[in-house]
Design a protein around this nucleic acid. Sequence first.
DNA 1: AAGCTGCTTAAGGAGTTCTTCAGAAGCATG
DNA 2: CATGCTTCTGAAGAACTCCTTAAGCAGCTT
Lengths: 222, 222
Amino acid sequence: MSRVLLVEDDEKLAEQVLGQLRGAGLDVDWVADGLEALTTDPSKYGLWILDLMLPNAYGLDILKHVRESSDVPVLLLSAQNDTKIKVRALELGGDDYMTKPFWPDELLARVQARLRRPDAVHEDRLEYEGVVLDLAARQLLVDGALVETTRVEFDLLALFVRRHGAAIERQWLVDRVLDPNRDGNERTLDVHISRLRKKLGPYGKCIVTVWGVGYRFEGEGA
Amino acid sequence: MSRVLLVEDDEKLAEQVLGQLRGAGLDVDWVADGLEALTTDPSKYGLWILDLMLPNAYGLDILKHVRESSDVPVLLLSAQNDTKIKVRALELGGDDYMTKPFWPDELLARVQARLRRPDAVHEDRLEYEGVVLDLAARQLLVDGALVETTRVEFDLLALFVRRHGAAIERQWLVDRVLDPNRDGNERTLDVHISRLRKKLGPYGKCIVTVWGVGYRFEGEGA
DNA sequence: AAGCTGCTTAAGGAGTTCTTCAGAAGCATG
DNA sequence: CATGCTTCTGAAGAACTCCTTAAGCAGCTT
């Protein structure tokens, strides 16, 4: 799935971005209105490009809406270098962030990097440094060695690797990974995280706690 | 002669299959209408892929028509795991049989196997370590010794060997292997797995339980 | 330092899978 | 079409996995 949705109210900028991305052979749709974005099915696209400075400050709401049902990558745009909004957006599960004005080439490079990233359904292998997930076999390899995982641990790690670099909310993980028949308890998630960290050995510290929010999976240098 | 004819009324599925096969460098023609297939010279192709669930139940008629003048290999597709049609089709001279939905890779593998050795009808076999499945004779050899299997056991094992290394979901197996006329019960699958493990002797432990998901067929070291 | 939030350990229990067995359904034979 | 045989199914209980809960400690924030 390589369709991209651009949510941008500035018509001039939108046309510029559209031209750039379509020129590179991408299939891009454009929505100028925040309300329309709120009613769009997130999973219809392989990537969202979302301007946070929409009228009525819809930006963060749209991000929240997307994250309620999907883990599609979201690339955020903002007109000003506002640290608070940027932090908040990454906490809410944004995957990348660009400050306007930006160089068209840079946007294209980041979009292509995100689209190249392992796709949720059709990829049967996820890799991040020495951590390899064989999705078809449901097996985890840490530095080439097979490590036994339970169902929850494997699903959890798959989410982390898919959205590496992005902060993921605790509650979002609870809703997706834990047994839906019981009311998910955040303490339960703690336990799974703890065990997963242990099993990941040297990569255990890649699961970074984002205090008050959730976790972020990232490498050493990041 | 490596031309392939696909007889399939479902346009979406047909396009998917066409893409898959043509992507592998094969020369594939497509016919959506059963009547047109009935007037096609069988010998113009090196392989037929024939959907049995065509409108007006032409499927078996087409197979009969082909067999009247040619022994070209015919790979059959069916939307449902209908044992009676399957048996009837093999009696009429079908060479292989796949139940929809199938893995694209599996279809390609079988088509290529057919094209590589056109007279392979009685040699087609699946092997994994000391486990050998003779698909034409429907016989199982364990370390060279013949082991009696029932229909369900043989089909089950064939699926495992074809997709060895991958975790296969319980429900997926239930849908394909058990009697479709009754609501498949997962407990029933347990029983077949249990018996199959026993018959496989030393290879019984190759059928690994993937807790909460299904099973995975794999060798010792894997 | 106080008050949260998050981490770890250990134990209980809910849910899943395995095995056995008996009966039903399908199939071939006479 | 009745008979006997094979195969499939479904129920029951045992065995097992691992998910969850609880409790105490550690770490962060103010």
